[in-house]
């Protein structure tokens, strides 16, 4: 399965809906998307991972890279994920402490620090 990406704006947030598998082959597409958004001035991102079937460390690397980029502009990168198999990877790597992880897009777009 390939990676699907779509973006929409909700208030001052940009929601990136990701579907499919994020791995060494598809992660560059996600990286390009995040880089493009930041370059275009979207600094508050919500990455909706509910449609993601597979995520590996390459994908984690891209998300960390995205976080670094938005933080350089005092922005934010929030994740939406309820899938245990995906959450497990964030826990193993300690990244649950790095990313705010929400249970719904609605919760993520209205969240403040």
């Amino acid at each position: 399965m390939d990676l699907s990406l779509s973006t929409r704006t909700v208030g001052d947030r940009t929601v990136v809906e990701v579907g499919g598998e994020i791995d060494v082959y598809t992660a560059p597409k996600l990286r390009e998307q995040l880089v493009e958004l930041v370059n275009d001035g979207s600094y508050h991102l919500v990455v909706d991972m509910e449609g993601v079937d597979f995520l590996d460390s390459t994908g984690l690397g891209v998300l960390v890279g995205g976080l670094k980029r938005v933080r350089a502009h005092e922005g934010s990168l929030r994740l939406v994920c309820n899938q245990e198999r995906i959450l497990k990877i964030f826990r193993i790597t300690g990244l649950t402490k790095v990313f705010p992880i929400h249970t719904s897009v609605q919760e993520a777009v209205s969240a403040t620090d």
Binding site: D56, S57, T58, L60, G61, V64, G65, I89, I92, T93
Partner: peptide, 9 residues
């Protein structure tokens, strides 16, 4: 980040 995380995972 990817490199170090691969073995960590």
């Amino acid at each position: 980040d990817e490199g170090t995380m691969g073995l960590a995972v």
